[in-house]
Amino acid sequence: MGELILVRHGETEWSRARRHTGLTDLPLTAHGEDQARALRGALKERRVARTLVSPARRARRTAELAGLTADAIDPDLWEWDYGGYEGRTTAEIREERPGWFLWDDGVVPGDAGHPGETVEQVGARAAAVLARVDPLPADGDVVLVAHGHFLRVLTARRLGLEPAQGRLFALATGTLSALGAEHGRPVVSAWNVPPCRPGRRPGPEAPVSA
């Protein structure tokens, strides 16, 4: 059976500055575009049966530069709506809420365009995506090109964990991860893998981003 391949988009100005970037539609930086192009080699070594991409232009551009053709633009793949914390860093938020942690404390409502989501609501969107891609094809992989926090929540749901357990899966920009199965049960077969040298398939042995 194929695997579920997770691609986090390349770097943006806000991801570089560690600002929470949910619904704000930012482009990739030059480095982010380089990250996306570098994924092409790893993805060429896989038999891709289907690709779903977030509507965000940072995700769509990553897919394009990585050599992927989107079979669908899936609105459920959008990043977590951070509400009133959109564009702010954790350090800035903690000046008002000492000890704040997204996975435990959530977000506050923002303006009409950023009402905010609970982790459970993000988990429901992730479950809807998983329902659409299951069962995975027997002869190829399904690729999801999306966002860091969303893909972490989706991974938790895939593994039968609560959405907030996505906190366990750190995920850098411009990386590839794979969710497979062992004896019919979901497992992580590769995680947070940066682009690798041509001819080498990414896997657990590949260097992992800090």
Rank of each mutant, 00 (worst) to 15 (best):
G87M: 15
A156H: 07
A131P: 00
R47A: 11
L102W: 14
Y85V: 02
G99T: 01
P186M: 09
W78F: 13
E205R: 03
A164H: 14
L6C: 08
I93G: 08
F169W: 05
A156M: 12
A66G: 05
E33P: 15
R94W: 10
A172E: 11
R18E: 12
A126T: 03
T175M: 08
D105L: 00
E117H: 00
D71M: 11
P194K: 14
L159G: 01
E13G: 12
T173G: 05
A190Y: 04
G180C: 06
P202L: 12
A66R: 09
R46Q: 04
G110K: 01
F169L: 10
G87R: 13
A17M: 15
A112W: 00
R125C: 01
A146E: 01
P198I: 08
D134T: 14
D111W: 04
A30L: 07
P198S: 15
E182P: 08
L39N: 01
R58S: 02
A128Q: 14
H20R: 05
V119G: 02
Q35V: 06
R50Y: 03
E45I: 04
S177F: 14
A146V: 07
L68F: 12
G84K: 00
R200D: 11
T21N: 09
A66K: 06
L4K: 03
I93M: 06
L168E: 10
Y82F: 15
D34H: 12
G113V: 13
A38F: 06
E3Q: 10
G140M: 09
L159K: 11
A91H: 11
E79R: 05
L151F: 14
G41D: 15
R37C: 06
L171N: 05
V142D: 04
L77H: 11
G174M: 10
V108K: 00
R200F: 12
Y85S: 00
L23G: 03
L130P: 05
A146L: 07
E92L: 09
G199L: 03
A30C: 01
T90I: 09
L23F: 13
L52C: 04
